[in-house]
């Protein structure tokens, strides 16, 4: 079992290694953590008595179990990668619930929107939005990035705000909520 503090209280992550044998000791050692609002995340198969034990323990020390849920990574279905084998010209728009791979350029006036990564084998001059559904680990990769605007997740960067690199392959990713561009 792993415990993590969140804004609303404590998040307990369980997996199949947590059993009725080893859990009571762990819970007793960290009893003070359980006097909170508790969310339980279940990584893989966890027996019902284990969950029941935690719920009873939390109740006995005055805490509340708000939710039992699977971890967020598993709950997100990975979309399909869209591969476009040509240059995307102005006015063109490619969307994907997964990643987008363009085997060509993306010209100014074109838009690529992906829930995961945007990979452009040629030059990226159009607008690219990676992690469009909020995936903050998404990246934008291109042989050269000359876009006036990049978006990753909820963050937006304009060309003037991005430090220009050497002109070789570049990758844009999120770092502390800001889009940064670095040679790849």
């Amino acid at each position: 079992m792993r415990a993590r503090g969140t804004r609303g209280g404590i998040l307990l992550s369980l997996d199949s290694g947590d059993t009725l044998e080893n859990l009571p000791d762990t819970l007793n050692d960290h009893q003070h953590l359980l006097e909170n609002n508790i969310v339980i995340e279940i990584g893989d198969a966890v027996s019902w008595p284990v969950i029941d034990l935690i719920v009873q323990k939390v109740a006995s020390v005055g805490g509340t179990v708000l939710e039992v849920r699977p971890p967020p990574i598993l709950s997100q279905a990975r979309g399909e990668t869209v591969i476009v084998a040509k240059t995307i010209r102005s006015g063109g728009r490619v969307e994907s619930s997964g990643s987008v791979v363009v085997l060509g350029d993306v010209n100014a006036g074109a838009e690529i929107i992906a829930n995961d990564d945007v990979i452009v084998v040629g030059i990226l001059r159009g607008v690219a939005h990676a992690g469009a559904n909020g995936n903050e680990n998404a990246v934008i990769w291109a042989r050269q990035i000359l876009s006036p605007q990049l978006r990753i997740g909820d963050a937006l960067a304009q060309a003037s705000g991005i430090d220009k690199t050497s002109g070789g392959p570049e990758v844009a990713h999120l770092q502390d909520g800001q889009i940064v561009l670095r040679p790849w």
Binding site: R89, S90, G91, G92, N107, A108
Partner: peptide
Amino acid sequence: EVSSVRDADRIIGLLE
């Protein structure tokens, strides 16, 4: 010029 090139790009896409 940039705007003419961009419009030509759009037109070439439509021709394709």
